[in-house]
Amino acid sequence: MKKSLLALAVLGAFAGAASAQSSVTIYGVADVGIERFDNDGAAGATWGLTSGNQSGSRIGFRGTEDLGGGLKANFVLENGFNIDTGTLGQGGRLFGRQAWVGLSGGFGAVKFGRQMTPIFVAHDTIDPMGTGLSGAGSGMSAVFNPYGVRMDNTVNYSFSAAGFSAEAAYGFGEVAGATSAGRQIGLGASYANGPLTVVAAYHDAQDPIAASDADARTFFVGGAFDFRVAKLHAAYGDNRGDTAAGATGIRSRDYMLGVSAPVGAGTISASYIRRDERLVADADGDYWAIAYVHSLSKRTNLYTSYSVIKNDDAGNVGGFAAGPGGDVSWFNVGIRHRF
Rank of each mutant, 00 (worst) to 15 (best):
Y147M: 11
Q54A: 15
N153P: 02
D38V: 13
D31P: 12
A42R: 09
G113P: 01
M129E: 08
G80N: 04
G91L: 10
N79W: 02
T46L: 13
F81H: 03
A30H: 02
N79G: 05
G69H: 00
G69F: 00
A45M: 10
G106Y: 02
M116Y: 14
T87R: 10
G86I: 09
G69E: 00
G163S: 05
M129V: 08
Y157V: 11
N82F: 12
G96M: 04
L77I: 09
V110K: 00
R150E: 04
N53F: 00
G113E: 07
T87S: 14
N39W: 01
V76S: 04
G33Y: 07
L49K: 08
F164V: 14
S23Q: 11
M140C: 04
M116A: 11
G148A: 08
V29N: 13
K72F: 10
N156C: 03
G69I: 11
E65G: 10
R93V: 03
G28D: 02
V101W: 00
R150S: 06
S22I: 01
F164P: 09
D66A: 10
F159C: 02
E35W: 03
A43L: 13
D127F: 00
L88H: 03
V101H: 05
I59K: 05
S22E: 10
F81P: 03
Q54I: 06
G86E: 07
G33S: 11
G130Y: 06
F95I: 04
V76P: 06
